[in-house]
């Protein structure tokens, strides 16, 4: 097991370096001079341009620049936003809980619905339930979620007036930021209605974000269950006279979950992509909206470091998924 973890960690190093190279290259490939971008619309004199260049390190050779860049990263210096002038890392850390909360709730919804639906569809293969749920899953999988979000807003916010259109919580509530998770902080604040407000803001975006992972998880669970139920050991469990509930819930499910957990983990990358769209539609103040705003404002230090941090995060999550895979699969665990 220890060697398994170690090999996974070593494997990550070249990938991580590659990610830093891409992030490093980004402003240098950008259409337009980053120095001019930084100086803003007023333009600069040639002297000031040279000075800014030197300040940003653009006048040195590329390998030197890259090493300096890596050095700054190791010190936690991810540069400053051109717009707000604040350190990128500070902004990232401030916005990250919003995305984490949204993503977490979405993946919980997707898993809690997707896995049981997939299991049931597999058990009742060919039934009405199977056909309807798998057709819905394919529709969900094909869904342009930016449109889906707009439809939900039209219906629930516009037509029914049940949910707010944007933001994380109603402006009438104010409480200190303890965990960064609005659901928890609103409860901690003890203010009446704060939790309900946070929840009503969260529900539509998380449903939208959960749509594609839910579809993928349901489909994957079904096919994993079908495959496992044809295995010899499931036949053995039946031959032992185990009740159907136990054959499926213990013997089949445990093995079917191994690929499903991998799938759930891989949805994290999908979620980050989905967060860009979902946060834009619902004006959710998270990483996705921050990135897309920064791209359109050409705030290149934010894009550069945001890219780096997001990729690093996805990579770490994938590592955790790999390790979980090792934990739940005795064939790897006991090597």
């Amino acid at each position: 097991m220890f060697r398994f973890i170690l090999s996974k960690l070593l494997y990550l190093i070249p990938t991580f370096l590659g990610i830093t190279i891409i992030a490093f290259s980004f402003p240098r490939l950008l259409a337009g001079d980053p120095v001019l971008l930084m100086a803003g619309e007023r333009g600069v004199t040639p002297e000031r341009h040279a000075e800014l260049s030197a300040q940003l390190g653009f006048d040195r050779s590329l390998p030197v620049q890259y090493l300096e860049f890596l050095g700054r990263l190791l010190h936690g210096d991810f540069g400053n936003s051109l717009v707000t002038k604040k350190p990128v890392l500070t902004e990232f850390l401030a916005l990250f809980p919003a995305t984490l909360e949204l993503g977490f709730v979405a993946i919980v919804i997707a898993t809690l619905i997707g896995v049981p639906v997939g299991v049931l569809a597999a058990i009742k293969r060919g039934s009405w339930f199977d056909q309807i749920s798998m057709t819905s899953a394919l529709v969900g999988f094909s869904m342009p979620i930016f449109w889906w979000g707009l439809l939900l807003i039209i219906f629930f916010s516009g037509f029914l007036g049940w949910t707010p259109v944007s933001g994380r919580i109603s402006l009438m509530y104010y409480f200190p930021n303890v965990t960064g998770f609005m659901l928890i902080d609103s409860l901690l604040s003890g203010q009446k209605g704060a939790f309900a407000s946070a929840l009503s803001h969260l529900i539509l975006p998380s449903v939208v974000l959960a749509t594609i992972p839910l579809a993928v998880i349901a489909r994957q669970t079904r096919s994993a269950m079908l495959e496992v139920m044809g295995e010899d050991y499931v036949r053995t469990a039946r031959a032992k006279g185990m009740p159907q509930r136990r054959v499926i819930g213990v013997h089949a499910l445990r093995n079917a979950m191994i690929p499903v957990i991998t799938t759930i983990g891989l949805q994290i990358g999908v979620l980050m992509a989905g967060a860009i769209l979902t946060e834009t539609i619902f004006s959710w103040p998270g990483i996705g909206k921050w990135m897309i705003d920064s791209i359109s404002r050409r705030d290149y230090p934010v894009v550069q470091s945001g890219l780096l941090l997001t990729a690093a995060m996805v990579m770490i999550v994938n590592l955790l998924v790999d390790l979980t895979y090792g934990l739940i699969n005795p064939r790897i665990r006991n090597k």
């Binding site: 070249p14 990938t15 590659g18 990610i19 891409i22 980004f26 490939l29 950008l30 259409a31 990358g269 999908v270 980050m272 992509a273 989905g274 860009i276 769209l277 990135m291 897309i292 791209i295 050409r298 894009v303 890219l307 997001t310 990729a311 996805v314 990579m315 994938n318």
Partner: peptide
Amino acid sequence: MRVMDIILAFPSLLLALVLVAILG
């Protein structure tokens, strides 16, 4: 394959957005 891994480490839409930002 390492290069492919690196590309796959980025959320696809985000990488596409950044590439478009570079290319215009």
